[in-house]
Design a protein around this nucleic acid. Structure first.
Lengths: 248, 248
DNA sequence: GTACGGTTTTGATATGAATCAATAATGGAT
DNA sequence: ATCCATTATTGATTCATATCAAAACCGTAC
């Protein structure tokens, strides 16, 4: 562990997108091989965050977007009366902070759900670069529109679907995101607590728990704590009416 | 009416941002006076849509963003099982289609809520231009992030707030948007039907109706059909715990 | 002016999930 | 290994809002 830190300190700021195993799903995906250096020039190797640590805080000056390298992040907004709404979960290869683009302050708070490392893209440099690389600009637009769409899907889920449907949708979403990283789509461990799931899906923790056991009794999933196995993906898809809707 | 059409056909394609009364809240807002021609060069004067007509349809090729010039637009997504979710209402000066940026197809369907005219920004030209005008690019990022934030607020509203709170929030949102256009923030007519309000806020029409009459009995608003007067904005703000959260 | 389809309102009842309450399991820390 | 705090599960009850049903209202076309 001390080793890891030493390693990073050896090359303190610059990260290598060339060597990163996530380059096919992260920002480099939109950059030509011969332009990749320009992206590397602006990326900073972020530090490692322990579970619960804040990557950034709502209403503090917006400086950077962060790509998750390992671990997982949750974002949430806190309303003035103190209520929290989890707005998203971010897995390796995904970009956090898009909801703050063009704003003075961060629009949400991001915290590590487990031990998490990130790459940092300072926003002024990133905007400058997207002005020069049309493909990268296009990709940023794409990512941001995806986040809008995802959020609309969530709104739909919240307003039209039952607790079971919401949870099935979340499980399937996680599944496909694991698969994108060439990991098992049927056997994974949830990065977040039941509480976060409940908050994200607009449910009470107790309801989440009950649905998990119900799914288990029906033989659709098998779950022990955060360890989940999807036994009947078909069934889950039947339960969910919608969520993914890819549209690259 | 025929006159209006003739007028537009006289200068068939090009719109004048210079002369537009909405230039201070629409895209021109982010463009220097001396660069404004470049924006005008790519804008097309869109046609006029009657109530109910589609501006664009979900899953058809994404070609343009549209700025509302007069009237109002609602966007919605239709899930595969046919359920509709209204995802937004767009008033003059606001940009429709951001949720499709960078995608091949439109992510939603947009239709006119009343007689509506629009300006059309072909997306290839717009992306090219934002690559050249950093301020415009920045503004696009800003608009898109605003839409993400708005959608997160909506999710919060849907998952944590009562029917009364949701409706109060919507009324206040509309109010502030009318005010931005120098119109009365307390006396306006709703561009949308109760049904659309209900769908947008994840409620049944009946519930919307009931809340309207309840607010009326409490002397908070006065409403007859789509005509609304906000009698006690304070009270509405008290009912709403959150919604606006400006963060320019 | 009258008639019609669609929208809005109002009332009565049913229900899914929240809340309240308690117990059980888990995972760090010592 | 044991203890404590946090997280998860299960059960009983309540409540806000959906649903079902019907009447009133409105705008538009004839």
């Amino acid at each position: 562990m001390a080793q890891v830190i030493r390693l990073h300190q050896a090359s303190p700021l610059k990260a290598s997108c060339h060597q990163c195993s996530l380059s096919n799903i992260c920002l480099p995906l939109a950059v030509e091989e011969n332009e990749l250096d320009r992206l590397e020039d602006i990326v900073q190797q972020g530090r490692i965050f322990n579970r619960g640590e804040h990557i950034f805080d709502q209403s503090t000056p917006f400086r950077s977007c962060f790509a998750v390298k390992s671990g997982a992040i949750k974002t949430s907004i806190i309303s003035e009366n103190g209520e929290e709404q989890v707005t998203g979960f971010f897995m390796p290869g995904e970009l956090v902070g898009l909801d703050s683009m063009g704003s003075k302050n961060y629009a949400c708070t991001a915290r590590a759900l487990e031990r998490t490392s990130v790459c940092e893209f300072p926003i002024d440099k990133l905007e400058e670069l997207t002005g020069k690389l049309p493909d990268l600009q296009h990709h940023m637009y794409h990512l941001m529109s995806q986040e809008i769409q995802g959020s609309h899907q969530l709104a739909m889920l919240l307003s039209k679907n039952t607790a079971e449907e919401r949870i099935a949708a979340l499980l399937l979403s996680l599944s496909s995101r694991f698969q994108r990283r060439r990991m098992s789509g049927t056997n994974f461990s949830l990065p977040m607590a039941r509480n976060d799931i409940a908050n994200f899906l607009g449910l009470a923790v107790e309801t989440v728990s009950r649905v998990f056991t119900r799914f288990q009794n029906q033989g659709i999933i098998s779950a022990r704590g955060r360890e989940v196995e999807l036994l009947d993906v078909e069934a889950l898809q039947t339960v969910t009416r919608e969520f993914s809707s890819q549209n690259s």
